[in-house]
């Protein structure tokens, strides 16, 4: 990956994902109601809102993880670089290689640290030989800010790491397939404050190369790591804008009451 060229991009970022009139239903439950949002490249976008408001649901629409839920139905349009990801011709597997995901609970494979990271490149044929693969693994682990901690025990099981290390390993694993977008669903909710700080720092670094979307229930976290914030409430996207503006000068009264702690 050629991240140097990405770094010196102009501040006005291009749109990476644009969602238009997205509705999601779980059977009869209307979980996401007519959401329109533009997610920019090289930006951390935070989704906040009270629990059950549909943040995860919407996030999972962006890489079609919802396809695995039988009763889930999505309508509307989600464009990635101008292409509708729900088009019939799109293979969700190909999409997920482009749009990586990190989950709430660290979920490394019960395999070695090396194999965890190498798995994605292997199935996508990104490495031509062992040396290539070694390089990808090292680069990804460095990008996951965990290389120094694990470089001496790459063949130890990934499940033997601490929670924070596991989550950074999962980030490294997601990064290894060279995605363009990284989705993170409450990546710090299972971590202690120190591990959280490390992951947050990492997210900030990742912004240089990816478009990052993070779901969080912590408003402080959203304020710390994101440039854009979307506030969801009962399936509606209530407000979307620059993080600074949302937290200091929200337009919608529901946003204001949420960030001041009156609904939650």
């Amino acid at each position: 990956m050629n991240d140097m060229s990405r770094l010196d991009k102009t501040v006005t970022n291009t749109t990476k994902i644009s969602a238009k009139n997205v509705n999601v239903y779980y059977g009869d439950t209307h979980a996401i109601k007519d959401v329109n949002v533009e997610i920019e490249d090289n930006t951390v976008t935070a989704f906040i809102g009270p629990s059950g408001c549909g943040k995860s649901t919407f996030l999972r629409c962006l890489n079609r993880m919802n396809d695995t839920i039988d009763i889930c139905r999505v309508t509307g349009e989600i464009l990635l670089d101008g292409e509708d990801i729900y088009d019939k011709r799109v293979d969700p597997v190909q999409l997920r290689a482009k749009v990586g995901m990190v989950f709430q609970k660290p979920n490394p494979f019960p395999k070695s640290i090396y194999d965890n990271v190498a798995y994605g490149p292997r199935i996508h044929g990104l490495a031509r030989n062992k040396a290539d693969l070694d390089e990808i693994v090292e680069k990804s682990l460095r990008r996951g800010a965990i290389w120094d901690e694990v470089k001496d025990r790459l063949h130890a099981p990934g499940t033997g790491l601490s929670g924070g290390q596991q989550q950074r390993l999962c980030i490294a694993r997601a990064v290894a397939t060279e995605p363009e977008v990284l989705l993170m669903d409450e990546p710090c909710s299972a971590l202690d404050p120190i591990a959280t700080a490390q992951v947050e720092e990492l997210i900030d670094e990742l912004r240089a190369s990816y478009s990052v979307v993070i779901v969080t229930h912590s408003m402080q976290q959203a304020a710390r790591v994101s440039q854009k914030t979307a506030f969801f409430h009962l399936g509606n996207l209530v407000e979307f804008g620059n993080t600074g503006q949302i937290f200091t000068n929200p337009e919608d009264p529901r946003t204001e009451s949420y960030i001041t702690g009156r609904i939650g």
Binding site: V93, A97, P110, G120
Partner: peptide
Amino acid sequence: SIRDAALGVGASKMQAVFH
């Protein structure tokens, strides 16, 4: 979560199951 992890890095359903 293991299935999610595999699907999340772009494995197909069958790869997730067999790997």
